[in-house]
């Protein structure tokens, strides 16, 4: 048959592609065409990990204005991509000291990146806090809804070299078979220091060997009395000190 159509002949490149695809097609078997749906847990995991980042982004977007920002809020970095990156990157799901709370990591990592620089930082006069931050509840992974109404403020005070974390907390949840614990966490979310159980307001001693500048995330969690020393992953309040 003669081709009288205006359709041009195939180029060398097209002929090469035709050969290449034909050789792949020649290998195609029926088993290659059968697809298996992934288990439901796969999507659940994706949703959870993307959700953790979204929660962190929301936390930043709704950061309370109670503490006077030392840095203008317009100086904050763009939250969305960093937050998603931080939580979506598999590397952020670190096990180790977090034990039960890997999910928390993404949320904190993202929040840390973004909160830093956003809060008041005063220093100088004796009696003034070295650093101070409003603590807030954020709905989402890593937070326990029992803390939904809780609010608070944390300040590092220095009394002649003895430092303590002064907590003013309100609407704390009633927890049975559990207690509240305050933590300082580092910005890489690789380490944390427990400052111990708390019942409410007070100035919790910071060990001299602990540099709050290295652990600027203040986190208050609900800890079941299960003898497990790791963070439960059930936070109620959190803030990042600019120190």
């Amino acid at each position: 048959m003669t081709d009288h159509s205006p359709e041009p002949d195939f180029s060398t490149e097209e002929l090469a592609d035709l050969d290449r695809f034909a050789s792949i097609a020649a290998e195609l078997t029926e088993s290659d065409t059968k697809l298996e749906a992934p288990p439901a847990a796969v999507w659940a995991g994706i949703e959870q990990r993307v959700g953790a980042s979204a929660a962190a982004a929301t936390a930043v977007a709704t950061a309370p204005a109670t503490a006077e920002p030392a840095v203008d809020v317009t100086d904050r970095v763009d939250v969305t991509d960093s937050a998603v990156d931080a939580a979506a990157a598999p590397d952020n799901v670190i096990q180790g000291p977090w034990g039960k709370a890997p999910l928390l990591l993404g949320a904190i990592a993202a929040a840390v990146l973004l909160f830093v620089g956003a809060y008041a930082f005063t220093q100088g006069n004796a009696g003034d806090p070295i650093a101070e931050v409003a603590l807030e509840f954020t709905e989402g992974p890593g937070f326990d809804a029992l803390g939904a109404n809780s609010t608070g403020n944390a300040a590092i005070l220095d009394d002649g070299g003895d430092r303590c974390l002064d907590l003013e907390l309100s609407a704390l949840p009633e927890v049975s078979d559990a207690y509240l614990e305050v933590w300082l966490i580092d910005t890489n979310v690789e380490g944390m220091v427990s400052l111990g159980p708390i019942k409410g307001d007070g100035c919790v001693s910071i060990p001299a060997s602990v540099d709050p500048g290295a652990f600027p995330v203040v986190d208050i969690s609900i800890e079941p009395a299960d003898g497990e020393p790791t963070h439960s992953g059930r936070s109620i309040l959190r803030g990042v000190l600019n120190i």
Partner: peptide
């Protein structure tokens, strides 16, 4: 033939 070629 033109149709075959354009389809391909």
């Amino acid at each position: 033939l033109g149709t075959v070629k354009s389809d391909i």
